[in-house]
């Protein structure tokens, strides 16, 4: 399992791995929104938590179709499925690798990008907390979407449509934590809901992903 994680991280960092794609997209969104909305910092700071969360979610979505497609194309998935590694574990590891290369950079960059949207000062802490708790769910659900559509030519569109509704609860509670934090309100309830959703999908989704992938490998 460590070998698979190490391989995925090395592949992401080496040329052509697509590391930084999500981060660049996130940067573009947060840079362009103030131009679109206009220079009203009160308005910006009110919508900042939602925009930052939306940007992070779309950045995550952007890199999903490469998650399994590359391993499918070169036959690695067939060989992994016949290896001693359970497919559930392999997919969990791939989701973890996706989070480390996509979700984690977003979490680290979010406070910097928050400045561009004049996020209120108490919001930074809660923004980072909500992203740390929420983005793993995005990677795990995304792995499920990728497993469902692997082998479908131009499956990216189908996958986005399948995955988006599953992302809604995470988006609602994640943005709610960041918004309440920014306005100095209690964040406990949405924070617990967000953490619950993430833990739930981490526990259940790998099994669903493995079943979907096995059917697709036939």
């Amino acid at each position: 399992m460590k070998a698979l994680l190490r391989r995925d991280l090395i592949l992401a960092i080496r040329a052509g791995g697509g590391f930084g794609l999500g981060l660049a997209f996130f940067l573009i969104v947060t840079v362009l929104v103030p131009f679109g909305v206009g220079p009203q910092s009160e308005l910006l700071s009110r919508i900042a938590p939602g925009i930052l969360w939306l940007g992070a979610l779309l950045a995550c979505l952007l890199s999903l179709d490469r998650l399994l497609a590359l391993d499918w194309e070169d036959g690695t998935l067939d060989l992994l499925a016949t290896s001693p590694l359970p497919l559930e574990a392999a997919l969990s590891i791939k989701a973890l690798a996706h989070w480390i290369t996509t979700g984690l950079p977003l979490v680290l960059a979010a406070p910097v990008f928050g400045v561009l949207l004049s996020l209120p000062q108490p919001g930074y802490f809660w923004l980072v907390i909500s992203l740390v708790l929420g983005t793993p769910a995005l990677s795990v659900i995304g792995t499920f979407g990728a497993a469902l559509t692997v082998g479908v030519k131009r499956g990216g569109l189908l996958m986005s449509l399948l995955v988006l509704p599953l992302y809604v609860p995470t988006l609602i509670f994640g943005a709610e934590v960041a918004r309440r934090g920014a306005e100095g309100m209690q964040t406990t309830t949405p924070l617990l809901m967000l953490a619950g959703i993430t833990l739930g999908v981490i526990a259940i989704m790998p099994f669903a992903s493995a079943v979907a992938l096995r059917v697709n490998l036939r």
């Binding site: 070998a3 698979l4 090395i10 040329a15 070169d74 036959g75 690695t76 290896s83």
Partner: peptide
């Protein structure tokens, strides 16, 4: 299988070491 499951951006030794670990 027909396809070898090789990663283009890994060296020969790295490809083999990966499968050895798996």
């Amino acid at each position: 299988a027909h396809s070898d499951g090789l990663k283009a951006m890994l060296t020969v030794a790295e490809n083999l070491t990966f499968w050895a670990d798996v």
